[in-house]
Simulated assay, not measured.
Amino acid sequence: MIQAKISEDIKAVCPNATLGCIQAKVKVKNSDKELLDELDKCAKELEANLKLEDVASLPEIHNSREVYKKLGKAPSKYRVSSEALIRRILQGKGLYHINNIVEINNILSIKSHFSVGSYNVKNIESPICLNVGQEGQSYKGIGKAEVNIANLPVLSDSISTFGSPTSDSERAMITNDVEEIVMCIYSFSGDEGLNEYLELAKELLIKYADADDISIQIVK
């Protein structure tokens, strides 16, 4: 399994920073009706139980926002992806359907309130590290222009940065030819609940992506 670590720079501002990682061989494909129905059910449950004005106070999102503030990044401009996703649902804007892995990410984010990113193992090198983006650093975001990653929590390997809780890069994005992924759940709230969500991730990957050769680790 790809090894992951968390830098001292991140730990200095958030001692509870934790990564939940699951690596698996998968079949990436367009999502079937059963998966889309499960995603839609999650979204409707969220709408029934949460108000837009309460999103920022959810513990998982609040803790992420505090880390961004400490790093000098405006959390309302550079929202963590879980907050952006939940806000989009509550604003009635609906969800884009990309592929089965992205839909599984979204189910996990809706249920856990954590940001979740999945990456093409073929395009990254072990070890990977959650650290702080440096001044002048940026990358081409998925479906976006250049993302300014200075002072953001970012995932890096020996090549470059490739992901963050806000927006991932194109380098390791999940396309239909990907054969193996590593999925990372970003927590700035410690490891509480991570085992539960990693097991849910495993269940969803087996059910909807024919996953096998599965490995799980929690990195503190």
Rank of each mutant, 00 (worst) to 15 (best):
V67S: 00
K25P: 02
G72N: 07
L71W: 07
N151Y: 13
E47K: 15
I159V: 14
A201W: 06
K202I: 01
E180Y: 07
I216M: 08
K73A: 12
S187L: 08
A56M: 10
I174C: 05
S160R: 15
K140R: 15
I10A: 04
L71K: 04
H113E: 06
Q23D: 13
L71R: 10
E135R: 15
L194P: 02
E45Y: 10
F162C: 07
V219S: 01
V154S: 04
E196V: 09
E125N: 11
D210L: 11
R171C: 00
P165D: 08
L95H: 07
S112I: 05
D210M: 12
R87V: 06
V121I: 12
Y197A: 02
S118Y: 08
Y119N: 09
P59S: 07
E192Q: 12
S31A: 14
D212R: 13
A43D: 04
A17M: 03
K41P: 00
Q217P: 00
D37A: 15
K207I: 05
G94S: 09
L85Q: 09
D213R: 14
N195A: 01
S112D: 07
Y96E: 15
A24Q: 05
P153I: 04
Y119A: 01
K77T: 14
G92D: 08
N49D: 13
V154L: 10
K202C: 06
N106A: 12
G190I: 04
E135C: 11
E103P: 08
I159S: 11
M173R: 14
G163T: 05
N131H: 13
I22L: 15
L205A: 02
L194V: 03
L200T: 09
V55C: 03
I104S: 01
K5C: 06
I206A: 00
A145F: 05
N100E: 06
